[in-house]
Amino acid sequence: MPYRAEKPGQRPSADELRARIPGWGADLDPKDRPAVPKERFDPAASGAHWDFPERQPEKWPRERSIEHQTLPPVFGTSAPPKGLSGALRKLAYRKYSEGRAAHWLILIAADRVDAVESHLRSFATLRPDNPITETGVLSEFSNKGLSSRTGSKRADVNHQWLDPVIVAGPWLLAGGAAVAILRTLTNRRR
């Protein structure tokens, strides 16, 4: 019990642990641990052969945190901002630092707008979004969807029903709104 000075409980000896666990104690000495000490000044260790890297060409005005003094020399070019979501992203980067909740909440909102814009855009292509294939939900039938969730206590089954709501909910709401608008317009014409 922790109410007295000695550490409570019994522990197996080092020899017992060494016999049972492969490699037990191999890194007992912190000197053998590569993350110790946390900071180790050794600029030559990384293999870099530059003091400051050459700059990658900036092919469009690259959005950046206002906590950066300047644009870092290398960056990803995966998905340039576009559309309404892009405007929101540029606003978040231009106006708010990483320390502001508004910065992140606008970026999260932009992600949702991006998803809607991209879904709508896909309907104008030969490959529209397909929620059945893109969610991989058919693997429920091929990979033990039911038996994986039954027979033992899983803490996540109490909220998994929310997942389809998150995926399909906005579309159902949008569809319902479209039907309501159409009905209203039809009734007015009558």
């Binding site: 693997s139 990979n143 033990k144 994986s148």
Partner: peptide
């Protein structure tokens, strides 16, 4: 897509 669903839903 199936791989992500299997891993996400902890199937199989």
């Amino acid at each position: 897509a199936e791989g992500y669903h299997i891993f996400s839903a902890k199937l199989d």
